Computed example of a mutant assay.
Amino acid sequence: MSNHIATRETVTDETEISLAELRGDCARMSPRWAAHAKSAAAPVAPSRIHGVTVPDTSARLVDTMSEYGD
């Protein structure tokens, strides 16, 4: 039985990359992935919220939970 350990040079599968190579690829691509500035969500008046229905079983489940979860 052989105890041969495959090194990067002996791996022929092109999909095998190291974490360092992946991080380098991401660093080179990151300028192309610029995030847009976040805009704050404006509060909505409760009178404008309509059409939301909650099944009775879900409402009972939520009603029995404590304020911050169990």
Rank of each mutant, 00 (worst) to 15 (best):
R60V: 09
T7I: 04
P55D: 02
R8H: 09
M29P: 00
I5T: 15
S58R: 06
H50C: 06
P43K: 00
L19N: 13
Y68C: 12
S39L: 09
T53K: 01
L19M: 13
D25N: 05
R32Q: 10
M1V: 06
A6P: 04
A27Y: 11
A27Q: 15
V44E: 00
R23H: 11
D13A: 09
V44M: 00
R8N: 08
R48K: 12
M65Y: 04
D56L: 01
A41P: 03
A34S: 15
S18T: 15
E21S: 01
G69S: 02
H36L: 14
R48H: 11
S66P: 03
A35I: 04
A27E: 15
P55V: 01
T7Q: 06
A59K: 07
A45I: 03
V54Y: 06
P55Q: 00
V11R: 12
S47D: 05
E14W: 12
Y68G: 13
R48G: 13
V62S: 07
E16R: 13
I49W: 01
D56C: 01
D25M: 06
R23G: 03
L19Y: 13
I5V: 15
S18Y: 11
H4V: 15
A37T: 09
A34M: 13
A59C: 06
L61T: 10
T7W: 04
A6S: 14
R32D: 09
W33V: 04
S66Y: 08
A42R: 15
